[in-house]
């Protein structure tokens, strides 16, 4: 999945962790994608996947004061979202498609939802931070 696809539109959002932060991210995704009728039926999937990636960034870096950056690109092959934090990073080999969550587990569904709702998911991580890149493959005809 190349981040260099020719963009029809690119929007950025800096999320500062706080009570309204995730709601603001969801509204950012919705308001950016809603004008595209061919994306409209898939907006809820993209919002949920982005929300879960941002939630992971907050939960795994609770003391990080830097914002989480969200970059949303609409391009000829669909919609790509990148969620980047400046936390301490993690082993990307652990960021793998999970098996079906155990029915009575109270955690572990966030990553499962990201992989289920998006068509491609990649993670890169270092001591400088982590980027989760997710793509929904769509034909954009408007």
């Amino acid at each position: 999945m190349s981040p260099e696809k020719k963009s029809r539109k690119m929007s950025r959002y800096a999320m500062y962790p706080g009570r309204a932060s995730l709601a603001s991210v969801r509204e950012f995704i919705r308001s950016t994608l809603e004008p595209f009728s061919s994306i409209s039926p898939h907006i809820c999937d993209i919002i949920t996947a982005t929300h879960e990636a941002c939630k992971n960034a907050i939960e795994h870096n609770p003391n990080c004061e830097s914002p989480v950056d969200i970059v949303l690109r609409i391009h000829d092959e669909g919609v790509t979202v990148e969620v980047s934090d400046r936390g301490h990073g993690f082993e990307v080999r652990n960021f793998i498609p999970p098996e079906d969550p155990k029915p009575l587990a109270q955690q572990g569904r966030g990553l499962f939802l990201i992989y289920s709702l998006m068509d491609e998911v990649e993670a890169t991580s270092s001591e400088l931070g982590t980027t989760i890149r997710m793509q929904k493959r769509l034909t954009i005809d408007d």
Binding site: L22, T48, H51, E52, K55, P103, L104, A105, Q106, Q107, R109, G110, F112, L113
Partner: peptide
């Protein structure tokens, strides 16, 4: 979100 699902399962 997944936190809400976890609360329902709990």
């Amino acid at each position: 979100d997944s936190t809400g699902l976890g609360v329902l399962v709990g």
